[in-house]
């Protein structure tokens, strides 16, 4: 299993994604510089990590979208390659048109960093087969713009086609307004594209892969990918 982690100049969760996939999930991981114009051979999954790709003073991900590597990422995805966008990575994937909708500013206005609970809605994707549907995992969020929004037709399309992968819930699995940290429509925390090979999620699974940090629930995402994509 080989991961490629795209590094934008303002990525700051790139090291964490590399550690999670290589040290804790035991895969091979390489960095891909944003100015590169090709994807290295043999990559099974590309991760667009969290951070502030280009400072995000304009609109999160709006500049990253036009980095040379993104053309290649889009090609990779269109050819069926798997892409995981986490936090700023999710924002970049929506800007690049690989995922629908947009991430607005949190309802509270503030940046929020805390543990949230996620309910797995669709465990048939390559990203989630190690999770059981409706079970609850604990994963942290850290963002100011994570409030998922899309037009009603898009939301229906996502819901009807089982493309919502994670929803914010409380520790008992109740998907409630109180458990929604940022105001996302239908408590949406992560979605996949139509073909099921591109996942965008605001919570950070790479942050919870080592029990010494209090929780290793995030490892299931990388273990799912390892199982499903290993050649």
């Amino acid at each position: 299993m080989k991961y490629g982690v795209v590094v934008f100049p303002g990525s700051n969760c790139d090291h964490d994604a590399i550690t999670a996939t290589s040290v804790y999930a035991g895969a091979e991981t390489v960095e891909i510089w944003h100015k590169d114009t090709s994807i290295p051979e043999g990559i099974d999954c590309i991760i667009i990590p969290g951070g502030f790709s280009f400072g995000d003073y304009l609109r999160s991900g709006a500049i990253a979208r036009v980095s040379p590597i993104m053309k290649e990422v889009i090609k990779f995805a269109n050819n069926g390659g798997h892409v995981l966008g986490i936090c700023n990575g999710f924002q970049i994937l929506t800007e690049a048109g690989l995922l629908p909708g947009t991430l607005q500013r949190n309802e509270s206005i503030h940046f929020i960093c805390k543990d949230v609970h996620l309910k797995t809605i669709n465990n048939s994707s390559a990203f989630t087969t190690k999770l059981k549907n409706d079970t609850v995992i604990k994963i942290p969020i850290a963002h100011q713009e994570g409030n998922f929004f899309a037009e009603p037709e898009t939301i229906s399309e996502l819901e009807d086609n089982n493309r919502v992968i994670f929803r914010y819930c409380d520790e008992n699995g109740n998907v409630s307004k109180e458990a929604n940290p940022n105001g996302s429509i239908n408590n949406i925390a992560g979605i996949i594209n139509e073909k099921g090979n591109v996942l965008g999620m605001m919570p950070h699974p790479e942050r919870y892969c080592d029990p010494i940090l209090g929780c290793a629930d995030g490892l299931a995402v990388f273990e799912s990918l390892n199982t499903n994509l290993s050649k």
């Binding site: 700051n12 969760c13 090291h15 964490d16 550690t19 999670a20 969290g50 503030h110 940046f111 929020i112 960093c113 805390k114 942290p140 850290a142 950070h204 790479e206 942050r207 892969c209 080592d210 010494i212 940090l213 209090g214």
Partner: peptide
């Protein structure tokens, strides 16, 4: 403290005690 990213770099073992523990 929830307005601060307290976990990036994945070294924060416990930040809710008398002192922060960083691995």
């Amino acid at each position: 403290f929830e307005q601060y990213d307290s976990q990036v770099r994945t070294n924060s073992v416990n930040i809710k005690g008398d002192a922060a523990v960083i691995r």
